[in-house]
Computed example of a mutant assay.
Amino acid sequence: MITKKEVGRSGERPIIAFTLMNRLGHSVDLLNLGGKITAIRVPDKQGKIENVVLAFDELDQYLDDPHHLGATIGRVGGRIANGAFALEGMNYLLEQNEGDHHLHGGSVNWSNRFFDHEIEGDLLHLSLVSPDGENGYPGQLDVRLTIEWTDEDALTLTYDATTTASTPFSPTNHTYFNLTGDAKTTVEQHRLRMDAPFYVPLDQDALPTGEILSVHETVFDFRTARPLYEVTHAPDEALRQVGSGVDHPFLLKEGGEIVLEEPVSGRTLRVVTEQPGVVVYTGNHLGGDFTIAGRRATPYLGICFETQGLPDAINQPDFPSVVLRVGDRYQKRTTFQFSRIQ
């Protein structure tokens, strides 16, 4: 069941909150503003239902959010070096909104856009048109994001798009997960396992160096489950660019999964995706003049799994391509499956 209500306004536009409820009484909330996921309410091992994603206590915080809580990111997630790329004999300049570089589609990106919506049974469709030249990108992009919440507590996000000119396209979702429920503590006691045999090292500007390296015998090896505190306080030189913690791309094994467990609540999250990679961000820089679940935000209060093509792939010939061409249809899905430790 899907319900909706107006919860505020931004200028002339209503801010609409959608609630997707399954037969178990577990639910997902999101906004037409930026397609932002504001709640996923699932039970712990005692049956207590709580929100397992970070959300602002005040709606106004979503209007100017440098942390992109729960947001749909586009056209391209992550950084593009020097805000520039060449494609099919043409050079393109993008907005440089993070120093000399381009981040998450620009300063006015899809997390700031209002999506149109359509409810089709248990499916919620959010759509927008990204005009030719938006933040420097070529081609008009017609995009639809379909959200499905099942009785098995699986949230599936399906991205569908076509373009009028070849363009880089690699959308993602920027939800911060905290399986303690209502952000009781940081995520440092969570245990993470990923079928990710390779990671992408970064330079001093947090840009990919172009290498794809094995995680073997590095701080980035999560092929066996490990508690996150091992990286949030690791002195490893490879983490220097992002401070303690992780903000790095990983290349997933085909058909691989990501599994996050929180031992106290007993909640688990399993992520499967059709994307080639994921940027794992442990919330190293969370903080500011706002509260989440009644507490001041702190580093490591949530972890993001930004499933996508690898950042700066448009400039890296050894990375999987993120180019969408005329006549092709982009369709990729990611599923976030919640359960409890047996």
Rank of each mutant, 00 (worst) to 15 (best):
residue 156 T to D: 04
residue 271 V to P: 02
residue 315 N to A: 10
residue 329 R to I: 14
residue 169 F to Q: 01
residue 10 S to Y: 14
residue 254 E to C: 07
residue 330 Y to K: 07
residue 206 A to S: 14
residue 295 R to P: 06
residue 337 Q to R: 15
residue 6 E to F: 10
residue 243 G to T: 10
residue 257 E to G: 11
residue 96 Q to M: 10
residue 16 I to T: 12
residue 319 F to I: 14
residue 160 D to Q: 11
residue 152 E to N: 14
residue 17 A to E: 13
residue 33 L to T: 04
residue 75 R to M: 05
residue 91 N to M: 12
residue 102 H to F: 09
residue 146 T to W: 03
residue 324 L to M: 13
residue 267 R to D: 00
residue 217 E to Y: 03
residue 200 V to I: 15
residue 287 G to A: 08
residue 236 D to Q: 09
residue 57 D to E: 13
residue 168 P to C: 04
residue 287 G to L: 08
residue 150 T to V: 09
residue 263 P to D: 01
residue 145 L to S: 03
residue 118 E to T: 13
residue 249 P to S: 10
residue 214 S to F: 04
residue 196 A to W: 00
residue 323 V to S: 04
residue 44 D to A: 08
residue 280 V to G: 00
residue 148 E to I: 07
residue 27 S to H: 10
residue 224 T to N: 12
residue 53 V to L: 13
residue 101 H to S: 08
residue 17 A to M: 12
residue 280 V to R: 10
residue 147 I to W: 12
residue 140 Q to W: 01
residue 198 F to K: 15
residue 12 E to W: 06
residue 267 R to C: 00
residue 284 N to M: 11
residue 80 I to W: 08
residue 98 E to L: 13
residue 92 Y to S: 09
residue 96 Q to T: 14
residue 147 I to Q: 05
residue 180 T to S: 15
residue 252 L to F: 09
residue 282 T to Y: 00
residue 240 R to G: 09
residue 18 F to D: 02
residue 37 I to D: 02
residue 3 T to A: 11
residue 279 V to F: 00
residue 179 L to A: 05
residue 130 S to E: 13
residue 263 P to N: 05
residue 65 D to I: 05
residue 324 L to C: 14
residue 336 F to N: 00
residue 248 H to E: 11
residue 79 R to I: 06
residue 298 T to H: 03
residue 119 I to C: 12
residue 224 T to C: 11
residue 222 F to L: 05
residue 299 P to W: 01
residue 62 Y to D: 07
residue 134 E to F: 06
residue 337 Q to E: 15
residue 158 T to E: 07
